[in-house]
Write a protein that binds this DNA or RNA. Structure first.
Lengths: 208, 208
DNA sequence: GTCTATACGAAGATAGAC
DNA sequence: GTCTATCTTCGTATAGAC
């Protein structure tokens, strides 16, 4: 009697390969990464890769799907426990200021975006991901604003788009120039935006 | 007597190769683009590439430098004629809402960023570029705010960083999901930020 | 399903003629 | 400086044993 059933063993190999792929793709990029690199790191041979995925692109897409799902899950956890504004900000700070503060994570995300420019399947996956991210922001914003009993001077969806764009934009700039721009200047930027909006909202309220 | 001097001829070839490289790199990405593709498009053979650049990477870096310089020049032109706020916004709108609205231009920019993650020389060039861009924004913001006779609730440099990050972030999201997010939602986002800041500034002034 | 061995093509880079 | 021909490396993918 094997400790792992056949199905479990298959899943395990697949999972190990995906983890290895994530690391290697992040380090070298899609085209630079060889299947041998990936198989080696997972402790298998090239044959194992082809037994589990039809080709390199298929592996990359599987990784993309996995990665996006995991990221969304993590986000939900941050928001989940009925936490207030401060808790959410603290959780974000714990993540290094923004989701893409980690160099490898960021590189992989860029790699996906670039790939998606020329690949419809990848583009679809990223669209879903972005929409979920934006939705997450919209819910967070509504929760915070409601907690303060203030009217929003703009729809939560629009503010969410701005916040999401800021998260990506700051990550991009900070990774290029880490000495001048820290990753958690995202939190500063979000704070600037937030206080300006709240101030505008209060002004509007008191004008009535 | 040749129509072109020797030096001019050299410059011409180099320039043709760079233009071809820009197109091919934008279409296929750095690793996917072959030197033969590029040479073909320019009407030369691979040998010509090696006569003008030491290798593929050198060509890519030369293109990066050219591209950044051109972009900065264009930006200066927009700001130059002592234009007011509306003129600047109109000029931006004429550019498709943001600098990276064009698909190829955007792809190339991402390609450069990704490359820079692993290449110090490219990273340095992008840093200079980003600092100039940020500076451009800071000058624009100061000009607009001064024109309105208002105090800024935050340093122009910080607001400039936010604007620059927004430009990049919106381009990223809009290219992934063009149906849901238009490129000129950058202008909406900037407007949202701007009015909120101005509102906050006016509130502060009237509080005194 | 996983391994080893191998076929095959693609593309960067070099050598030498013009 | 530019071309053609060639070398060489590398990585995807397949075939067949276990």
């Amino acid at each position: 009697m094997p400790r792992l059933t056949r199905a479990e063993s298959v899943q395990r190999t697949r999972s190990l390969l995906l983890t290895a792929a994530e690391e290697v793709f992040a380090e070298k990029g899609f085209t630079q990464a060889s299947l041998e690199d990936i198989a080696d790191r997972a402790g298998y041979s090239r044959g194992a890769v082809y037994a589990n995925f039809t080709n390199k692109e298929d592996l990359f897409l599987a990784l993309l799907g996995d990665w996006l799902d995991r990221d969304i899950e993590e986000s939900e956890e941050i928001l989940a426990p009925g936490g207030d504004a401060m808790q959410t900000v603290d959780a974000l700070r714990g993540r290094g200021g923004n989701r893409f503060a980690d160099r490898e994570r960021f590189a992989l995300m860029l790699e996906f975006r670039l790939y998606a420019i020329r690949n419809p399947l990848a583009a679809q996956a990223l669209r879903d991901y972005d929409r979920k991210s934006r939705d997450w922001y919209a819910r967070s914003i509504r929760r915070v604003i409601q907690g303060m009993g203030l009217p929003l001077p703009a729809p939560a969806e629009q503010v969410a788009l701005v916040a999401l764009a800021l998260e990506h934009g700051i990550a991009l700039l900070a990774h290029t120039d880490p000495e001048a721009i820290s990753q958690d200047s995202y939190l500063d930027a979000a704070t600037l935006l937030g206080t300006a909006l709240i101030s505008a909202a209060e002004r509007e309220r008191s004008a009535r």
